[in-house]
Nucleic acid binder design. Sequence first.
DNA 1: CTGTATCCTCTAAGATACTG
DNA 2: CAGTATCTTAGAGGATACAG
Lengths: 136, 136
Amino acid sequence: MTFTAEQKRLAAQEAYNGGLAHCPARQLLETISSKWVTLVMLALADGPQRHSELRRQIPGASQKMLTSTLRALERDGLVSRLVTVSVPVRTDYELTPRGHSLLGVLIGLKDWAEENMDGVAHARMEYDRHRLEFGE
Amino acid sequence: MTFTAEQKRLAAQEAYNGGLAHCPARQLLETISSKWVTLVMLALADGPQRHSELRRQIPGASQKMLTSTLRALERDGLVSRLVTVSVPVRTDYELTPRGHSLLGVLIGLKDWAEENMDGVAHARMEYDRHRLEFGE
DNA sequence: CTGTATCCTCTAAGATACTG
DNA sequence: CAGTATCTTAGAGGATACAG
């Protein structure tokens, strides 16, 4: 059996994407680029917080999103969840050691961003201005 | 004129999200979490590359995606584009100084990922296993 | 208080075909 | 070779209502 060039290309793409899915860096990016993870982790930086406290600190997150990002972080072993059975229920979230370690990396990201994103914004404006001026 | 609690909450959310949009760290995350930017930047780490060379190095990216991530990176001043008018046309892409600087941060991310994502994967399996065992 | 279950929207990413 | 123009689709994110 032989293959067309197209088939070979598609096979290569598939293999490549399959590999990508298992690339640790890609996985990490997928985790931290979820809209609320960084904010949640930052909110937990200073110690445990209850669900309701997190809601107050991150008013932009819907309840569903807050719960689901907390679940994802728990599943990844970055946050631990402690439920106190009472009426009403009380739930505390806390960074695990690995979570703290990741937080360090995130802060590095934040620092770079705060130093450089102004420049990026400026570059964007320049780029857009030229596009307008010289048509295209 | 008065406002309901609901209106106040929505206003707060809107203000918060508006603020988020201007948060440098969030913007950076949005940039680098675009599926192909890290791969493109890594491919450019060792020096300039032509469009076709990039395609070969990153076979998973469709032409459209490759072009559009390159455009985005150029707009942000992270990559520069040099077109040589000839037949056929030749285009070279290269990291700018700011691009190199960002690359450093990305490598930090990669290092953390390579050290920790195994642990994360393990945590995920444990989590899922418990979920299956104890129902819920 | 903490969380689940639906339903809906919007957009990043991909497939495909075409142009200078 | 490099790039643009459409069309489609999968899934992240959100609004709302309900439940233990």
